[in-house]
Computed example of a mutant assay.
Amino acid sequence: MAEILPLSAAVADLVHDGDTVALEGFTHLIPFAAAHEIIRQRRRDLTLVRMTPDLIYDQLIGMGCARRLVFSWGGNPGVGSLHRFRDAVQNGWPGPLEIEEHSHAGMANRYVAGASGLPFAVMRGYTGTDLLEYTDTIRPITCPFTGELLTAVPALRPDVAIVHAQRADRAGNVSMWGITGVQKEAVLAADRSLVTVEEIVDELSPVPDQVVLPTWAVTAVAEVPGGAHPSYTMGYSVRDNDFYVAWDPISRDRETFQRWMADHVLGVGEPDGQPR
């Protein structure tokens, strides 16, 4: 059964140094507020997992939280590179960063295998690519029925998965809708999970095409209005496109980046007004 907690308490309980952490969301429902709390609590040596690491992973990497990144595509959507990510890979600042690269399909299939309790997933998607030469978690496998040469990828089972959603009820059942990506699979694959939500309500109203995460699948829920900003939450907010553009010059320079993080993340209270 999910426990309803303040964000700081949920992160303190669920995210530990050295954990494998997946913060999922695709354009929509990206859990920025939860990641900022991880930064404030100075978690270290994390293996960060995500299909599409963007600004929030740039911030986590630049603040020294990450030791390793498992991902498919990474960048500032519609703008350009992630400069803190690039600096870590090319120059080892603020520390060296190991990378494990997959395709979108490979990452999605790994989450599905983890959620299904299977050891690996099998797919055709890597055939003809050179990723097998660079990523040792992609292995050739022969179909026992047809003899076709395929590729296998190991299941993803994060220590903790963190996602954002629109609503939860007081029992910890979660409702999300819109572009939902692999949030459900990430939560089901993880040992522990945290869902930040725009609001906690007495009863979940039916919404077309919603995904419901039942309370038994969720470890903790935190009410964090605006917790996806600068990404958006369908029905609650719109994407802050200006911020994505502004992030490019902020993140290019190490000192400018550090000042911005000090002013806007470190020492800042929780978005829900809870004291620190």
Results as ranks from 00 to 15, higher is better:
M1Y: 14
E3L: 11
L7A: 02
A10V: 00
V21F: 09
L23A: 07
L23Q: 06
L23R: 08
F26S: 11
Q41T: 10
R42D: 07
P53K: 00
D54F: 11
Q59I: 11
L60G: 05
G62Q: 05
C65V: 00
C65L: 01
G80N: 05
D87C: 13
A88L: 01
A88W: 01
V89K: 11
G95N: 13
E101P: 13
E101K: 15
R110L: 08
G114T: 00
S116M: 12
T127V: 15
T129P: 00
L132N: 11
L132R: 12
T135G: 01
R139N: 07
R139M: 09
R139Y: 12
C143W: 15
P144T: 06
G147M: 04
E148D: 09
I162L: 06
I162T: 09
I162H: 02
A168K: 04
A168W: 01
R170K: 06
M176T: 14
G178P: 03
I179M: 12
Q183G: 15
V187P: 06
A190H: 01
D191T: 10
R192N: 04
S193R: 05
L194Y: 00
V195Y: 08
E199Y: 13
E199W: 14
E203N: 13
S205Q: 15
P208H: 08
V212W: 11
A217L: 03
V218M: 08
E223L: 07
P225R: 08
G227D: 08
Y232N: 12
M234W: 15
G235E: 10
N241F: 12
D242K: 08
V245F: 02
R252S: 12
F257K: 07
V268H: 07
G269N: 12
P271T: 02
Q274Y: 10
P275Y: 09
R276T: 10
